[in-house]
Design a protein around this nucleic acid. Structure first.
Length: 437
DNA sequence: AATCACTCCGTCTGACACGT
DNA sequence: ACGTGTCAGACGGAGTGATT
């Protein structure tokens, strides 16, 4: 279980000390390219590029780049590895939120580090984040150029700054800021002469096509930031129905839609289907991996990067484990209960919140299977005996139990077949760490 | 399954302050 | 011009439940 840092078990200095420790030995062998892809995915989701002005009447801009997440032992581990890629020059900011949980920001406000390290490192980002980095670089070149104080440079720089974040919360509007700065440096200049349309041309409207690199670690990192996985329990008819769903939601923008299509196309090459849907009257766009088949495929792809589970460790183990049962428990009572227990244990969305609900589901399973035949996964073979065919991967795909082997005792034959079926299913649960032996 | 309505609180995005 | 500590209001979206 991942440990969350809250006001009862930690203070700021303790967390800071942990962050400043060296990375763990086993993390020293992490593939740096894969980790960079993962970090870029996380940056895509939780990263920020922005900054602020020192003074209202000047255009001197101070940048801020960061990634922020809840403070847990795993997010500390993640940030330590990330910071090692920056020669440990990134700073940490720790804050306590209202519910008593700590939050960490790994950030820099250092132009030098941003231009030489941050921007190159996060060049695998897409859409608005990539655009933001490109704008920030342009701002840097203007701010430190010889003609930085030219009217043209000032307006160009301010225009770029105001477009780094699509929903900026600046107190002064772009036109007011331009007026303030120009008024201060050029009191005689007639600000009514400014043609703002020209400066919009400095913005990048279409990102270059070379940035279409996609990878499983990037998707994993993106999921770590903005994704969620849960299993819905549908309670209709006589039996329960379990549906695994992984979702990543983003604010609806053209950039994000393109990114989702890129991810979707990439996952398609692994024969994995996704659904992209607008949500909340088109303000949000959601990428979903649904259906038990798709979840199983995704689970296998992600499992390769188990060392990168980080802040979604619990959720991803839950996904890996439950995907061993999704789709095959329909006629299998024990499997049904184990899956229900898993869902209850991980306490995720559509959680089995309280005992009453849990007991209700358990009872539903008991009742549901009363009406089902006990001869599931087993069929009669003419007048010769029985055949057991299990939904799991197993050495002989099917196993026969002939009457003649058991002295033509049909009841004994059936019992042996059933014992075999139950034993193998139970073994499957044990081997996949779904129950204790 | 899809969609809608509603609430709450956590994060996002700067902003301020002060030192050198 | 730049480093750094700390703060806060607004907005977004997670969570929830109901309906079709």
């Amino acid at each position: 279980k991942e440990v969350k840092y809250n006001k009862n078990n930690s203070n700021k200095n303790q967390i800071l000390n942990l962050l400043n420790k060296n990375i763990k030995d086993e993390d020293k062998y992490i593939d740096s390219k894969s980790f960079q892809q993962l970090a870029n995915g996380l940056f895509q989701a939780e990263g920020h590029i922005g900054g602020y002005f020192e003074l209202n009447q000047t255009s001197y801009f101070r940048p801020i780049c960061y990634i922020s997440v809840n403070a847990t032992d795993e997010s500390v581990r993640l940030f330590r590895i990330l910071n090692k890629n920056f020669d440990n020059k990134l700073k940490y900011i720790i804050s306590l939120n209202k519910s008593g949980l700590y939050h960490i920001r790994i950030q820099t406000r250092d132009w030098n580090l941003i231009v030489n390290k941050w921007i190159p490192y996060f060049s695998l980002a897409h859409g608005d984040k990539l655009r933001g980095l490109k704008y920030l670089l342009k701002v840097y070149y203007i701010q430190y150029s010889n003609d930085k104080n030219d009217i043209d440079s000032i307006i160009k720089k301010l225009t770029l700054i105001y477009n780094i974040v699509d929903n900026n919360q600046r107190k002064i509007s772009l036109t007011d800021k331009i007026k303030l700065v120009l008024n201060h440096s050029y009191p005689d200049y007639n600000i009514n002469n400014i043609n703002y349309n020209i400066y919009n041309d400095y913005l990048i409207h279409e990102l270059p096509k070379e940035h279409n690199e996609m990878s499983i670690p990037f998707i994993l990192g993106f999921y770590l930031g903005d994704g969620t996985f849960n299993i819905k329990i549908r309670d209709e008819g006589t039996l329960l129905w379990y549906i695994g769903v992984l979702r990543i939601s983003q604010k609806y923008t053209e950039d994000n839609e393109k990114l989702f299509i890129l991810i979707s196309d990439y996952l398609n090459t692994y024969d994995l289907d996704t659904i992209i849907r607008p949500f909340k009257e088109g303000t949000v766009i959601v990428l979903k991996v649904e259906s038990n088949q798709n979840i199983k495929k995704l689970s296998k792809l992600l499992h390769v990067y188990e060392e990168f589970y980080f802040i979604k460790k619990d959720q991803l183990y839950f996904m890996n484990k439950s995907s061993k049962l999704l789709g095959l428990v329909k006629y299998w009572k024990e499997g049904n209960i184990v899956l229900l227990n898993l869902i209850s244990e991980y306490n995720l969305n559509y959680r089995v919140k309280n005992d009453t609900k849990y007991k209700y589901y358990l009872n539903k399973i008991e009742e549901g299977f009363k009406n089902q035949s006990d001869l599931y996964f087993l069929s009669k073979v003419g007048i010769e005996g029985y055949l057991v065919k299990l939904p799991i991967k197993i050495k002989p795909k099917t196993k026969y139990f002939y009457y003649k082997t058991y002295n033509k005792d049909k009841d004994l034959t059936l019992k042996t077949a059933l014992d075999y079926r139950d034993r193998m299913l139970n073994l499957y649960l044990i081997e996949n760490d779904l129950i204790k032996s």
